[in-house]
Write a protein that binds this DNA or RNA. Structure first.
Lengths: 227, 227
DNA sequence: CCATAATCCGAGTAAAAGCTCGGTTCTACT
DNA sequence: AGTAGAACCGAGCTTTTACTCGGATTATGG
Protein backbone atom coordinates (compact mmCIF):
# COMPACT_ATOMS: atom_id res chain seq x y z
CA UNK A 1 0.00 0.00 0.00
CA UNK A 2 0.91 3.62 -0.26
CA UNK A 3 2.73 2.72 -3.42
CA UNK A 4 5.06 5.50 -4.44
CA UNK A 5 4.18 7.63 -7.42
CA UNK A 6 7.65 7.26 -8.92
CA UNK A 7 7.75 4.39 -11.35
CA UNK A 8 10.60 1.92 -11.37
CA UNK A 9 12.89 2.14 -14.34
CA UNK A 10 11.16 1.89 -17.69
CA UNK A 11 14.20 0.94 -19.73
CA UNK A 12 14.83 -2.65 -20.79
CA UNK A 13 17.27 -4.52 -18.61
CA UNK A 14 19.50 -5.54 -21.46
CA UNK A 15 19.26 -5.95 -25.18
CA UNK A 16 19.50 -9.33 -26.88
CA UNK A 17 22.53 -9.89 -29.06
CA UNK A 18 22.21 -13.40 -30.39
CA UNK A 19 19.67 -14.22 -33.07
CA UNK A 20 17.73 -16.59 -30.86
CA UNK A 21 17.56 -13.99 -28.17
CA UNK A 22 16.31 -11.38 -30.57
CA UNK A 23 13.50 -13.69 -31.57
CA UNK A 24 12.60 -14.20 -27.93
CA UNK A 25 12.62 -10.49 -27.31
CA UNK A 26 10.36 -9.81 -30.27
CA UNK A 27 8.05 -12.62 -29.28
CA UNK A 28 7.64 -11.11 -25.83
CA UNK A 29 6.92 -7.61 -27.08
CA UNK A 30 4.46 -8.86 -29.66
CA UNK A 31 2.76 -11.09 -27.13
CA UNK A 32 2.43 -8.05 -24.92
CA UNK A 33 0.73 -6.17 -27.72
CA UNK A 34 -1.59 -9.08 -28.43
CA UNK A 35 -2.59 -9.40 -24.81
CA UNK A 36 -3.26 -5.68 -24.61
CA UNK A 37 -5.35 -5.79 -27.74
CA UNK A 38 -7.34 -8.86 -26.85
CA UNK A 39 -7.74 -8.71 -23.11
CA UNK A 40 -6.91 -5.21 -21.99
CA UNK A 41 -4.38 -3.83 -19.59
CA UNK A 42 -5.72 -5.45 -16.47
CA UNK A 43 -5.16 -8.88 -17.99
CA UNK A 44 -1.58 -8.09 -18.89
CA UNK A 45 0.38 -10.03 -16.30
CA UNK A 46 3.98 -10.95 -16.80
CA UNK A 47 3.21 -14.65 -16.46
CA UNK A 48 0.47 -14.43 -19.04
CA UNK A 49 2.59 -12.54 -21.53
CA UNK A 50 5.43 -15.02 -21.20
CA UNK A 51 2.94 -17.79 -21.73
CA UNK A 52 1.48 -16.23 -24.87
CA UNK A 53 4.96 -15.54 -26.17
CA UNK A 54 5.81 -19.17 -25.61
CA UNK A 55 8.81 -18.44 -23.41
CA UNK A 56 9.55 -19.04 -19.77
CA UNK A 57 8.73 -16.34 -17.28
CA UNK A 58 12.37 -16.05 -16.30
CA UNK A 59 13.31 -15.30 -19.88
CA UNK A 60 11.01 -12.33 -19.81
CA UNK A 61 12.75 -10.99 -16.74
CA UNK A 62 16.04 -11.56 -18.49
CA UNK A 63 15.19 -8.58 -20.68
CA UNK A 64 12.77 -6.50 -18.69
CA UNK A 65 13.48 -5.52 -15.10
CA UNK A 66 9.77 -5.25 -14.32
CA UNK A 67 6.31 -5.18 -15.76
CA UNK A 68 6.32 -1.46 -16.43
CA UNK A 69 9.41 -1.68 -18.56
CA UNK A 70 7.73 -4.35 -20.63
CA UNK A 71 4.63 -2.27 -21.17
CA UNK A 72 6.73 0.77 -22.03
CA UNK A 73 8.53 -1.24 -24.66
CA UNK A 74 5.28 -2.51 -26.14
CA UNK A 75 4.02 1.04 -26.38
CA UNK A 76 7.25 2.20 -27.96
CA UNK A 77 7.03 -0.57 -30.51
CA UNK A 78 3.46 0.16 -31.53
CA UNK A 79 4.12 3.88 -31.72
CA UNK A 80 7.19 3.23 -33.80
CA UNK A 81 5.32 1.25 -36.41
CA UNK A 82 2.62 3.86 -36.48
CA UNK A 83 5.08 6.67 -37.07
CA UNK A 84 6.75 4.70 -39.82
CA UNK A 85 3.44 4.48 -41.61
CA UNK A 86 2.97 8.19 -41.18
CA UNK A 87 6.46 8.91 -42.38
CA UNK A 88 5.74 7.05 -45.58
CA UNK A 89 2.69 9.22 -46.08
CA UNK A 90 4.60 12.50 -45.77
CA UNK A 91 6.44 11.59 -48.94
CA UNK A 92 3.25 11.13 -50.83
CA UNK A 93 1.66 14.26 -49.44
CA UNK A 94 4.39 16.80 -50.02
CA UNK A 95 4.23 15.96 -53.70
CA UNK A 96 0.48 16.48 -54.03
CA UNK A 97 -1.44 19.66 -54.83
CA UNK A 98 -1.81 22.15 -52.03
CA UNK A 99 -5.58 22.11 -51.61
CA UNK A 100 -5.58 18.39 -51.03
CA UNK A 101 -2.69 18.25 -48.58
CA UNK A 102 -4.62 18.74 -45.34
CA UNK A 103 -7.20 16.16 -46.23
CA UNK A 104 -4.54 13.67 -47.32
CA UNK A 105 -2.52 14.11 -44.18
CA UNK A 106 -5.47 13.65 -41.87
CA UNK A 107 -6.57 10.65 -43.90
CA UNK A 108 -3.13 9.15 -43.43
CA UNK A 109 -3.30 9.73 -39.70
CA UNK A 110 -6.69 8.13 -39.55
CA UNK A 111 -5.55 5.14 -41.55
CA UNK A 112 -2.46 4.63 -39.42
CA UNK A 113 -4.44 4.70 -36.20
CA UNK A 114 -7.39 2.71 -37.51
CA UNK A 115 -5.07 -0.04 -38.68
CA UNK A 116 -4.14 -0.60 -35.02
CA UNK A 117 -7.46 0.28 -33.45
CA UNK A 118 -7.33 -2.50 -30.88
CA UNK A 119 -3.95 -1.88 -29.32
CA UNK A 120 -4.19 1.85 -29.67
CA UNK A 121 -7.46 1.90 -27.80
CA UNK A 122 -6.08 0.03 -24.85
CA UNK A 123 -2.85 1.99 -24.84
CA UNK A 124 -4.58 5.33 -25.02
CA UNK A 125 -7.23 4.55 -22.47
CA UNK A 126 -5.88 2.02 -20.03
CA UNK A 127 -2.13 2.26 -19.55
CA UNK A 128 -1.88 4.13 -16.25
CA UNK A 129 1.61 5.57 -16.71
CA UNK A 130 1.37 6.33 -20.41
CA UNK A 131 2.68 9.86 -20.10
CA UNK A 132 5.78 8.78 -18.29
CA UNK A 133 6.90 6.75 -21.25
CA UNK A 134 9.53 8.73 -23.14
CA UNK A 135 8.42 7.39 -26.51
CA UNK A 136 5.01 8.97 -26.06
CA UNK A 137 6.44 12.37 -25.40
CA UNK A 138 8.80 12.00 -28.31
CA UNK A 139 5.95 11.24 -30.67
CA UNK A 140 4.06 14.30 -29.46
CA UNK A 141 7.04 16.54 -29.92
CA UNK A 142 7.65 15.13 -33.35
CA UNK A 143 4.13 15.76 -34.54
CA UNK A 144 4.16 19.26 -33.13
CA UNK A 145 7.42 20.02 -34.90
CA UNK A 146 5.93 18.70 -38.09
CA UNK A 147 2.94 20.99 -37.72
CA UNK A 148 5.20 23.98 -37.18
CA UNK A 149 7.36 23.19 -40.16
CA UNK A 150 4.28 22.77 -42.34
CA UNK A 151 3.08 26.17 -41.23
CA UNK A 152 6.44 27.77 -41.95
CA UNK A 153 6.65 26.10 -45.30
CA UNK A 154 3.15 27.29 -46.12
CA UNK A 155 4.03 30.86 -45.17
CA UNK A 156 7.17 30.88 -47.28
CA UNK A 157 5.81 29.37 -50.44
CA UNK A 158 2.12 30.00 -50.38
CA UNK A 159 1.41 33.36 -48.90
CA UNK A 160 -1.04 31.98 -46.39
CA UNK A 161 -1.25 34.03 -43.24
CA UNK A 162 1.13 32.89 -40.50
CA UNK A 163 -0.62 31.28 -37.58
CA UNK A 164 0.50 32.10 -34.08
CA UNK A 165 2.43 29.42 -32.30
CA UNK A 166 -0.35 28.87 -29.81
CA UNK A 167 -2.73 28.29 -32.69
CA UNK A 168 -0.40 25.76 -34.28
CA UNK A 169 -0.08 23.99 -30.98
CA UNK A 170 -3.82 23.83 -30.65
CA UNK A 171 -4.34 22.61 -34.17
CA UNK A 172 -1.74 19.89 -33.77
CA UNK A 173 -3.03 18.50 -30.49
CA UNK A 174 -6.66 18.93 -31.41
CA UNK A 175 -6.45 17.19 -34.75
CA UNK A 176 -4.54 14.40 -33.05
CA UNK A 177 -7.20 13.86 -30.46
CA UNK A 178 -9.99 14.25 -33.00
CA UNK A 179 -8.53 11.52 -35.17
CA UNK A 180 -8.12 9.28 -32.15
CA UNK A 181 -11.67 10.01 -31.16
CA UNK A 182 -12.98 9.24 -34.64
CA UNK A 183 -11.25 5.87 -34.56
CA UNK A 184 -12.01 4.86 -31.00
CA UNK A 185 -15.48 6.24 -30.49
CA UNK A 186 -16.96 6.89 -33.91
CA UNK A 187 -20.12 8.93 -33.44
CA UNK A 188 -23.24 7.27 -34.80
CA UNK A 189 -24.51 8.94 -37.94
CA UNK A 190 -21.18 10.08 -39.31
CA UNK A 191 -18.89 8.03 -41.51
CA UNK A 192 -15.17 8.24 -40.77
CA UNK A 193 -14.68 9.72 -44.20
CA UNK A 194 -17.16 12.46 -43.51
CA UNK A 195 -15.50 13.26 -40.21
CA UNK A 196 -12.03 13.45 -41.67
CA UNK A 197 -13.24 15.63 -44.50
CA UNK A 198 -14.98 17.96 -42.08
CA UNK A 199 -11.86 18.02 -39.95
CA UNK A 200 -9.75 19.00 -42.94
CA UNK A 201 -12.16 21.77 -43.78
CA UNK A 202 -12.03 22.96 -40.20
CA UNK A 203 -8.25 23.12 -40.27
CA UNK A 204 -8.19 24.92 -43.58
CA UNK A 205 -10.73 27.38 -42.36
CA UNK A 206 -8.63 28.19 -39.32
CA UNK A 207 -5.58 28.57 -41.49
CA UNK A 208 -7.52 31.00 -43.65
CA UNK A 209 -7.27 28.82 -46.71
CA UNK A 210 -10.95 28.33 -47.43
CA UNK A 211 -13.83 30.39 -48.79
CA UNK A 212 -16.99 31.32 -46.94
CA UNK A 213 -18.26 28.62 -44.59
CA UNK A 214 -20.73 25.99 -45.73
CA UNK A 215 -19.98 26.35 -49.41
CA UNK A 216 -18.25 23.22 -50.73
CA UNK A 217 -17.63 24.71 -54.18
CA UNK A 218 -14.46 26.49 -55.31
CA UNK A 219 -11.25 25.74 -53.47
CA UNK A 220 -8.32 28.09 -52.94
CA UNK A 221 -9.75 31.38 -51.72
CA UNK A 222 -7.17 34.14 -51.73
CA UNK A 223 -5.01 34.25 -48.67
CA UNK A 224 -5.19 37.44 -46.72
CA UNK A 225 -2.08 39.07 -45.31
CA UNK A 226 -1.82 39.27 -41.57
CA UNK A 227 -0.33 42.01 -39.41
CA UNK B 1 -5.69 -14.79 -15.45
CA UNK B 2 -7.49 -14.43 -18.71
CA UNK B 3 -9.75 -12.08 -16.88
CA UNK B 4 -12.93 -11.49 -18.82
CA UNK B 5 -13.41 -8.19 -20.58
CA UNK B 6 -16.88 -7.72 -19.17
CA UNK B 7 -16.75 -5.72 -15.99
CA UNK B 8 -18.72 -6.73 -12.93
CA UNK B 9 -21.62 -4.47 -12.12
CA UNK B 10 -20.73 -0.81 -11.68
CA UNK B 11 -23.78 0.20 -9.71
CA UNK B 12 -23.64 0.65 -5.94
CA UNK B 13 -24.90 -2.31 -3.97
CA UNK B 14 -27.39 -0.29 -1.97
CA UNK B 15 -27.94 3.28 -0.99
CA UNK B 16 -27.67 4.51 2.62
CA UNK B 17 -30.87 5.70 4.25
CA UNK B 18 -29.93 6.72 7.75
CA UNK B 19 -27.93 9.87 8.38
CA UNK B 20 -24.95 8.06 9.81
CA UNK B 21 -24.87 5.78 6.81
CA UNK B 22 -24.97 8.69 4.43
CA UNK B 23 -21.98 10.19 6.16
CA UNK B 24 -20.11 6.91 5.80
CA UNK B 25 -20.99 6.69 2.13
CA UNK B 26 -19.76 10.21 1.44
CA UNK B 27 -16.60 9.63 3.43
CA UNK B 28 -15.82 6.59 1.31
CA UNK B 29 -16.38 8.34 -1.99
CA UNK B 30 -14.36 11.35 -0.94
CA UNK B 31 -11.58 9.17 0.36
CA UNK B 32 -11.57 7.45 -3.02
CA UNK B 33 -11.15 10.78 -4.76
CA UNK B 34 -8.37 11.79 -2.41
CA UNK B 35 -6.49 8.57 -2.94
CA UNK B 36 -6.83 8.93 -6.69
CA UNK B 37 -5.57 12.48 -6.55
CA UNK B 38 -2.68 11.85 -4.25
CA UNK B 39 -1.46 8.41 -5.11
CA UNK B 40 -2.90 7.45 -8.45
CA UNK B 41 -5.10 4.61 -9.58
CA UNK B 42 -2.67 1.83 -8.89
CA UNK B 43 -2.62 2.76 -5.22
CA UNK B 44 -6.39 2.76 -4.97
CA UNK B 45 -7.06 -0.46 -3.10
CA UNK B 46 -10.28 -1.04 -1.26
CA UNK B 47 -8.50 -1.53 2.04
CA UNK B 48 -6.59 1.68 1.63
CA UNK B 49 -9.68 3.70 0.74
CA UNK B 50 -11.57 2.35 3.73
CA UNK B 51 -8.61 3.28 5.88
CA UNK B 52 -8.43 6.83 4.58
CA UNK B 53 -12.17 7.17 4.96
CA UNK B 54 -11.83 6.04 8.56
CA UNK B 55 -14.32 3.21 8.19
CA UNK B 56 -13.99 -0.54 8.34
CA UNK B 57 -13.36 -2.40 5.12
CA UNK B 58 -16.59 -4.32 5.56
CA UNK B 59 -18.52 -1.06 5.65
CA UNK B 60 -17.17 -0.22 2.24
CA UNK B 61 -18.42 -3.50 0.86
CA UNK B 62 -21.76 -2.78 2.46
CA UNK B 63 -22.32 -0.13 -0.18
CA UNK B 64 -20.14 -1.16 -3.11
CA UNK B 65 -20.22 -4.69 -4.48
CA UNK B 66 -16.65 -4.41 -5.77
CA UNK B 67 -13.79 -2.08 -6.41
CA UNK B 68 -14.98 -1.06 -9.86
CA UNK B 69 -18.32 0.12 -8.55
CA UNK B 70 -16.51 2.26 -6.03
CA UNK B 71 -14.31 3.85 -8.66
CA UNK B 72 -17.31 4.43 -10.92
CA UNK B 73 -19.05 6.24 -8.14
CA UNK B 74 -16.03 8.40 -7.43
CA UNK B 75 -15.86 9.35 -11.09
CA UNK B 76 -19.56 10.10 -11.18
CA UNK B 77 -19.22 12.30 -8.14
CA UNK B 78 -16.31 14.34 -9.50
CA UNK B 79 -17.98 14.72 -12.88
CA UNK B 80 -21.15 15.83 -11.19
CA UNK B 81 -19.51 18.62 -9.28
CA UNK B 82 -17.69 19.70 -12.39
CA UNK B 83 -20.89 19.90 -14.41
CA UNK B 84 -22.56 21.86 -11.66
CA UNK B 85 -19.82 24.46 -11.91
CA UNK B 86 -20.27 24.56 -15.65
CA UNK B 87 -24.02 24.86 -15.33
CA UNK B 88 -23.58 27.91 -13.15
CA UNK B 89 -21.43 29.45 -15.86
CA UNK B 90 -24.01 29.01 -18.60
CA UNK B 91 -26.20 31.46 -16.76
CA UNK B 92 -23.53 34.07 -16.74
CA UNK B 93 -22.57 33.50 -20.32
CA UNK B 94 -25.92 33.62 -22.03
CA UNK B 95 -26.39 37.09 -20.64
CA UNK B 96 -23.11 38.45 -21.92
CA UNK B 97 -22.33 40.09 -25.27
CA UNK B 98 -22.00 37.81 -28.25
CA UNK B 99 -18.34 38.37 -29.11
CA UNK B 100 -17.24 37.40 -25.65
CA UNK B 101 -19.37 34.30 -25.28
CA UNK B 102 -16.97 31.77 -26.76
CA UNK B 103 -14.08 33.00 -24.73
CA UNK B 104 -16.14 33.07 -21.57
CA UNK B 105 -17.42 29.57 -22.07
CA UNK B 106 -14.00 28.10 -22.71
CA UNK B 107 -12.66 30.01 -19.75
CA UNK B 108 -15.34 28.46 -17.59
CA UNK B 109 -14.48 24.99 -18.84
CA UNK B 110 -10.85 25.60 -18.13
CA UNK B 111 -11.58 26.88 -14.65
CA UNK B 112 -13.83 23.96 -13.83
CA UNK B 113 -11.26 21.42 -14.92
CA UNK B 114 -8.26 23.24 -13.49
CA UNK B 115 -9.95 23.44 -10.11
CA UNK B 116 -9.84 19.63 -10.00
CA UNK B 117 -6.59 19.13 -11.86
CA UNK B 118 -5.37 16.35 -9.65
CA UNK B 119 -8.32 13.99 -9.70
CA UNK B 120 -9.19 14.81 -13.26
CA UNK B 121 -5.73 13.90 -14.41
CA UNK B 122 -5.81 10.51 -12.79
CA UNK B 123 -9.36 9.84 -13.90
CA UNK B 124 -8.71 10.82 -17.48
CA UNK B 125 -5.41 9.02 -17.80
CA UNK B 126 -5.42 6.07 -15.48
CA UNK B 127 -8.86 4.62 -14.91
CA UNK B 128 -8.83 1.59 -17.20
CA UNK B 129 -12.57 1.23 -17.68
CA UNK B 130 -13.42 4.91 -17.82
CA UNK B 131 -15.53 4.62 -20.93
CA UNK B 132 -17.70 1.93 -19.47
CA UNK B 133 -18.90 4.26 -16.77
CA UNK B 134 -22.33 5.57 -17.74
CA UNK B 135 -21.73 8.96 -16.14
CA UNK B 136 -18.86 9.61 -18.52
CA UNK B 137 -20.95 8.96 -21.55
CA UNK B 138 -23.75 11.07 -20.15
CA UNK B 139 -21.43 14.01 -19.68
CA UNK B 140 -20.22 13.69 -23.27
CA UNK B 141 -23.71 13.59 -24.64
CA UNK B 142 -24.69 16.55 -22.56
CA UNK B 143 -21.84 18.72 -23.77
CA UNK B 144 -22.50 17.73 -27.36
CA UNK B 145 -26.16 18.64 -27.02
CA UNK B 146 -25.14 21.96 -25.55
CA UNK B 147 -22.87 22.66 -28.51
CA UNK B 148 -25.67 21.88 -30.93
CA UNK B 149 -28.16 24.07 -29.15
CA UNK B 150 -25.67 26.92 -29.09
CA UNK B 151 -25.20 26.54 -32.80
CA UNK B 152 -28.91 26.53 -33.44
CA UNK B 153 -29.43 29.52 -31.23
CA UNK B 154 -26.67 31.37 -33.02
CA UNK B 155 -28.20 30.62 -36.39
CA UNK B 156 -31.62 31.84 -35.36
CA UNK B 157 -30.63 35.05 -33.69
CA UNK B 158 -27.28 36.02 -35.09
CA UNK B 159 -27.15 35.26 -38.78
CA UNK B 160 -23.95 33.28 -38.45
CA UNK B 161 -23.64 30.53 -41.00
CA UNK B 162 -24.98 27.18 -39.84
CA UNK B 163 -22.26 24.65 -39.19
CA UNK B 164 -22.74 21.08 -40.34
CA UNK B 165 -23.44 18.57 -37.64
CA UNK B 166 -20.12 16.86 -38.22
CA UNK B 167 -18.40 20.19 -37.70
CA UNK B 168 -20.26 20.80 -34.45
CA UNK B 169 -19.33 17.35 -33.26
CA UNK B 170 -15.69 18.02 -34.03
CA UNK B 171 -15.70 21.41 -32.36
CA UNK B 172 -17.30 20.02 -29.23
CA UNK B 173 -14.96 17.08 -28.78
CA UNK B 174 -11.89 18.98 -29.87
CA UNK B 175 -12.40 21.92 -27.57
CA UNK B 176 -13.05 19.48 -24.77
CA UNK B 177 -9.82 17.66 -25.31
CA UNK B 178 -7.91 20.89 -25.90
CA UNK B 179 -9.03 22.28 -22.57
CA UNK B 180 -8.11 19.04 -20.86
CA UNK B 181 -4.76 19.11 -22.57
CA UNK B 182 -4.16 22.71 -21.54
CA UNK B 183 -4.83 21.81 -17.92
CA UNK B 184 -3.03 18.50 -17.74
CA UNK B 185 -0.04 19.08 -19.96
CA UNK B 186 0.39 22.81 -20.34
CA UNK B 187 2.93 23.44 -23.10
CA UNK B 188 5.97 25.40 -22.00
CA UNK B 189 5.97 28.92 -23.32
CA UNK B 190 2.23 29.48 -23.39
CA UNK B 191 0.14 30.71 -20.52
CA UNK B 192 -3.22 29.04 -19.97
CA UNK B 193 -4.87 32.34 -20.68
CA UNK B 194 -3.11 32.66 -23.99
CA UNK B 195 -4.14 29.16 -24.95
CA UNK B 196 -7.77 29.64 -24.07
CA UNK B 197 -7.88 32.92 -25.93
CA UNK B 198 -6.32 31.31 -28.97
CA UNK B 199 -8.77 28.44 -28.71
CA UNK B 200 -11.69 30.85 -28.61
CA UNK B 201 -10.36 32.62 -31.66
CA UNK B 202 -10.00 29.29 -33.41
CA UNK B 203 -13.58 28.36 -32.69
CA UNK B 204 -14.87 31.73 -33.78
CA UNK B 205 -12.87 31.50 -36.96
CA UNK B 206 -14.35 28.13 -37.77
CA UNK B 207 -17.80 29.46 -37.07
CA UNK B 208 -17.09 32.34 -39.42
CA UNK B 209 -17.38 34.96 -36.72
CA UNK B 210 -13.94 36.54 -36.76
CA UNK B 211 -12.01 39.09 -38.81
CA UNK B 212 -8.77 38.46 -40.67
CA UNK B 213 -6.40 35.99 -39.01
CA UNK B 214 -3.43 37.10 -36.96
CA UNK B 215 -4.54 40.62 -36.17
CA UNK B 216 -4.87 41.12 -32.45
CA UNK B 217 -6.09 44.69 -32.82
CA UNK B 218 -9.73 45.68 -33.10
CA UNK B 219 -12.25 43.40 -31.49
CA UNK B 220 -15.76 43.08 -32.72
CA UNK B 221 -15.38 42.31 -36.44
CA UNK B 222 -18.77 42.17 -38.10
CA UNK B 223 -20.12 38.68 -38.52
CA UNK B 224 -20.09 37.70 -42.12
CA UNK B 225 -23.09 36.05 -43.69
CA UNK B 226 -22.50 32.54 -44.96
CA UNK B 227 -24.11 30.80 -47.92
C1' DC C 1 -38.24 -0.11 26.75
C1' DC C 2 -37.90 -3.72 23.69
C1' DA C 3 -37.60 -5.98 19.22
C1' DT C 4 -36.29 -5.60 14.75
C1' DA C 5 -33.63 -3.87 11.31
C1' DA C 6 -29.87 -1.12 9.77
C1' DT C 7 -25.13 -0.20 10.16
C1' DC C 8 -20.52 -1.06 11.34
C1' DC C 9 -16.40 -3.78 11.94
C1' DG C 10 -11.56 -6.12 11.48
C1' DA C 11 -9.35 -10.51 11.50
C1' DG C 12 -8.90 -13.76 8.21
C1' DT C 13 -9.08 -16.31 3.48
C1' DA C 14 -8.10 -17.58 -1.05
C1' DA C 15 -6.29 -16.24 -5.14
C1' DA C 16 -3.20 -14.06 -7.86
C1' DA C 17 0.58 -11.21 -9.11
C1' DG C 18 5.45 -9.88 -9.52
C1' DC C 19 9.66 -11.60 -9.41
C1' DT C 20 13.97 -14.81 -7.96
C1' DC C 21 16.72 -19.01 -7.57
C1' DG C 22 19.33 -22.53 -9.04
C1' DG C 23 20.29 -24.86 -12.61
C1' DT C 24 20.15 -26.79 -17.62
C1' DT C 25 20.83 -25.90 -22.57
C1' DC C 26 22.57 -23.64 -26.37
C1' DT C 27 26.04 -20.59 -29.08
C1' DA C 28 30.39 -18.53 -30.21
C1' DC C 29 34.98 -18.90 -30.61
C1' DT C 30 39.55 -20.74 -30.33
C1' DA D 1 36.37 -30.51 -29.17
C1' DG D 2 36.07 -27.78 -25.35
C1' DT D 3 34.96 -23.93 -22.67
C1' DA D 4 33.06 -19.44 -21.36
C1' DG D 5 29.26 -17.06 -21.31
C1' DA D 6 24.70 -15.99 -23.22
C1' DA D 7 20.14 -17.53 -23.17
C1' DC D 8 16.54 -20.17 -21.27
C1' DC D 9 13.54 -22.23 -17.82
C1' DG D 10 9.64 -23.24 -14.34
C1' DA D 11 8.74 -24.32 -9.58
C1' DG D 12 7.97 -21.66 -5.91
C1' DC D 13 8.53 -17.48 -2.63
C1' DT D 14 6.65 -13.32 -0.98
C1' DT D 15 3.54 -9.87 -1.03
C1' DT D 16 -0.57 -7.96 -1.93
C1' DT D 17 -5.38 -7.67 -2.96
C1' DA D 18 -10.29 -8.15 -3.26
C1' DC D 19 -13.59 -9.71 -0.56
C1' DT D 20 -16.32 -12.63 3.40
C1' DC D 21 -17.80 -14.06 7.97
C1' DG D 22 -19.74 -13.77 12.26
C1' DG D 23 -20.83 -10.90 15.40
C1' DA D 24 -21.02 -6.22 17.96
C1' DT D 25 -23.25 -1.67 17.94
C1' DT D 26 -26.62 1.75 16.98
C1' DA D 27 -30.98 3.53 15.30
C1' DT D 28 -36.26 3.07 14.73
C1' DG D 29 -40.87 2.89 16.03
C1' DG D 30 -44.40 0.63 18.45
Amino acid sequence: MLRKRAQPTLAPRKLPTQARARRTYRAIVEAGARVLERQGYEALTTNHVADVAGVGIASLYEYFPNKHALVAEVVRHVLDELLVDLGASTQLITTSPREAATRLWLGAMYAAVAKRRGVVRVIAQEVPFLWQIPAVDNARTLLLALARSTRDLGVKTGGTAPLSDAMIYLLATMTGSAVLEAVLRPPPGHSPDELITALAELVDRVAGRSPAPARPRQRRGRARAGA
